[in-house]
């Protein structure tokens, strides 16, 4: 009969030890909204579960100089309730707000969303678009990597055995910098993104884009940073021609699959649509910050 042990360490070091010491599969638990579902369905049979929610530094949002520091196990509701974060990164909060329902957001964390490594994860594109980094703890100490370096394929991460994300560092926005995240689902809630798109832009005083990141979700094995799409924006205002170029660039970047959630052709078209719509929102928000 399958058996599983559970531990809830109080410090990062204890957590590292517990994970490193496990003989079989050991899984980190933040909100559990992915993990428990996988356990129940029998897709996953870990030997050990290490709960991160008792580690104080892993829950909550701090401001450290030029960064927001978000504890990896912080539930979504805390992000949405954080006024300064919400003001700085409405797109990140939009991503978080789309995860499941109020109940789910009471548990679900960004780290879990990221490390579950679904191409459709909603909070991940805006976090990548914000050029956030992740601080990783492991048997060899701590290291810091760009968030986009963590997911390497559906269900697969670059984290080594015993490693886990402790916190995210999100550089605070520059003047006239803002973001937006949109996803498309066939229904209005409780669904998985067919396509997701985050756009993070910085404008000059005249409304011309001077920096941009466009990140697509659910159209490739991992989230995609679409440089060509960013280039379509940089140096331009959001006119019809720019939007058309952005649309095409987003479409070209897609490497989707056909599955029960959408066809290749449809996903590609929608990627272009969402890129335009998200860019329009991000531009408007950034301009409003002048």
């Amino acid at each position: 009969m399958p058996r599983v042990s559970y531990t809830a360490p109080a410090t990062v070091d204890e957590a590292v030890k517990a994970l490193a010491g496990a003989a079989g599969l050991a899984k980190v638990l933040s909100g559990g909204t992915d993990l428990l579902v996988q356990l129940k369905s029998g897709r996953l049979a870990p030997e050990l579960i290490v709960d991160m929610k008792r580690i104080p530094e892993m829950i909550g949002i701090r401001e450290e100089g030029e960064f927001f520091v978000i504890g990896a196990a912080t539930p979504g509701v805390m992000l949405s309730a954080h006024e300064r974060l919400e003001h700085a990164f409405p797109g990140i909060v939009e991503g978080v707000d789309l995860i499941g329902s109020t109940q789910i957001q009471g548990r679900a964390s960004i780290a879990g969303n990221l490390c579950n490594a679904s191409p459709a994860a909603d909070s991940v594109p805006p976090v990548i678009a914000a050029r956030a980094t992740a601080v990783i703890a492991g048997p060899n100490g701590r290291r810091e990597v760009a968030v986009e370096a963590i997911v390497i394929g559906p269900g697969r991460t670059s984290l080594a055995k015993g490693e886990f994300v402790v916190e995210f560092k999100v550089p605070k926005p520059k003047p006239r910098q803002c973001d937006a995240y949109l996803r498309f689902i066939p229904r209005t809630e409780m669904d998985i993104a067919v396509v997701g798109c985050a756009v993070n832009v910085t404008l000059d005083a005249g409304g011309t884009c001077i920096d941009a990141r466009v990140v697509l979700g659910a159209v490739a094995p991992t989230q995609l940073i679409v440089d060509e799409a960013a280039q379509a924006l940089i140096g331009h205002k959001l006119d019809a021609d720019t939007l058309a170029k952005l649309d095409l660039a987003a479409q070209r970047a897609c490497k989707p699959i056909t599955d029960k959630r959408g066809t290749i052709e449809y996903r590609i078209k929608i990627a272009g649509v969402l890129a335009r719509r998200a860019a329009a929102i991000a531009f408007e928000r950034a301009a409003a910050r002048a």
């Binding site: 058309a244 479409q251 070209r252 066809t263 052709e265 449809y266 590609i268 078209k269 929608i270």
Partner: peptide, 17 residues
């Protein structure tokens, strides 16, 4: 949505990559 979008594209062919 995919079926509707395909039907609409027949009316008004989009620019596709």
């Amino acid at each position: 949505p995919p079926k509707l979008r395909a039907a609409l594209d027949l009316q008004d062919p989009p620019r596709l990559a």
